[in-house]
């Protein structure tokens, strides 16, 4: 469990000078835990409004990415934006899962979301049996991701804690 938490911290902090890395990690780990717990308490007190905030934040994250893709001319850059978005969200899911604050039920649901994100990453590059998304369909593909995640949001039920963890991690990553 401890090693999981260490991995989680590593995934979200910028690299540090080698000689002070251990101490910095511990400080940042403690700081992150405090921030996360405070946010969970504050938003948890808000009840359903807090849950809605968490869900909306995740959906807005995908929508913002789609807007960036559509505002970009170069297909190479479009792919890069989409690829970064999908891998950042996957990292957030991994981090939430490894935080030890989520339940076994949450973890199963998070794995389902992660699997759908992996499929989208594969389709973007044409791996694992997928046809590569053509350059002229990247805008439509970005809309597909938004709409698919909006629908997944309605059928995949994760706890408030898990939803908020993902939000917090996204805020820290982006």
């Amino acid at each position: 469990m401890l090693s999981n938490k260490k991995k989680f911290t590593n995934s979200i902090v910028p690299t540090c000078p080698r000689n002070s890395r251990g101490a910095t990690e511990t400080k940042e780990h403690v700081m992150f835990t405090r921030i996360a717990l405070r946010l969970i308490v504050v938003i948890g007190v808000l009840g359903s409004a807090g849950a809605a905030f968490g869900q909306d934040k995740v959906l807005n994250y995908f929508n913002d990415t789609a807007l960036k893709v559509k505002a970009t001319e170069s297909p190479v850059q479009k792919r890069e934006i989409l690829s970064n978005n999908l891998s950042e969200m996957t990292r957030a899911l991994d981090a939430a899962k490894n935080s030890s604050l989520t339940s076994a039920q949450d973890d199963m649901q998070l794995d389902r979301v992660k699997a759908t994100l992996q499929e989208k990453s594969d389709e973007l590059v044409g791996a694992n049996g997928f046809d590569r998304v053509p350059d002229d369909q990247l805008n439509a593909f970005s809309t597909y991701i938004v709409q698919d995640m909006e629908q997944a949001d309605k059928s995949i039920t994760i706890s408030l804690v898990a939803a908020l963890l993902i939000v917090i991690i996204i805020i820290l990553i982006v």
Binding site: A52, T143, E150
Partner: peptide
């Protein structure tokens, strides 16, 4: 419940 979606122009 959660009824947020985004239209084709990305508006919430």
């Amino acid at each position: 419940g959660d009824y947020l979606y985004h239209d084709t122009l990305g508006r919430a």
